[in-house]
């Protein structure tokens, strides 16, 4: 068996690859920021909010955690137009990512909130703070400190999982790979290259998140 690697055949498509890479990075950053915001709100609602709101959030979390991401994506992109909601593939990709990470991070952040000693909450209340002030100034900081590693892992899982958005023709890194392979038929080189690109991206993300964590939680 002999196969001659010819990475030079990728060169003419450098702009396609670059576009895909940037798309994946932007998709990850935006869905991380928005997803963690959704997760924080969801976790706050489940722990500090009224019961009815907590129930709604619980249903959302279970719906997302117990269905495949690709089905969620297809539902948003192919299903919702039936209700008159037609989204571009890019918008659908971003939306699906945020909804997905939002659900997982709700559970992760909730675990962090529940790990904060009840006494700290009572101390805050006894200082005449409202429960929302307690949540904001006392609970969330401690909660994020505790769950930051778990949340970082989830962000990387979501970043790698974002490859699925190529299935609705959102032009991410995997879409670029499919595009190139269908033209130059160099499947081996294309997917090897893209796999390495994801590997590097994941490792860089991990380091970036670790560095960010050191800055945010500098004290102690």
């Amino acid at each position: 068996m002999s196969y001659k690697l010819q990475f030079a055949e990728l060169l003419p498509y450098w702009n396609v690859l670059l576009y895909g890479l940037v798309f994946t990075i932007v998709l990850t950053i935006v869905s991380t920021v928005a997803g963690v915001a959704v997760g924080t709100a969801g976790a706050a609602a489940r722990t500090f909010g009224p019961t009815w709101l907590g129930r709604i959030v619980a249903v959302y979390v279970e719906l997302i955690r117990n269905t495949p991401f690709i089905v969620q994506l297809f539902f948003i992109f192919f299903g919702l137009p039936a209700l008159g909601l037609k989204l571009s593939e890019t918008t659908a990709a971003f939306l699906a990512m945020v909804i997905n990470l939002g659900a997982y991070s709700t559970e992760i952040i909730r675990a962090g909130i529940e790990a904060v000693p009840k006494g700290h909450i009572e101390a805050g209340l006894s200082l005449a703070m409202t429960k929302w002030e307690v949540l904001r100034h006392i609970v969330l900081n401690q909660a994020f400190r505790k769950i930051y590693p778990a949340l970082s892992s989830q962000i990387i899982i979501v970043m790698l999982g974002s490859a699925v958005v190529s299935q609705i023709s959102a032009e991410d890194l995997t879409y670029a790979a499919n595009y190139i392979a269908s033209r130059n038929f160099r499947n081996f080189e294309v997917y090897l290259f893209v796999a390495l690109a994801y590997l590097v991206l994941a490792m860089l993300t991990r380091s970036a998140l670790r560095a960010l964590g050191r800055v945010i939680f500098k004290a102690r």
Partner: peptide
Amino acid sequence: QQFNLFPH
């Protein structure tokens, strides 16, 4: 009893 200082 447990002080309950905010550790951060």
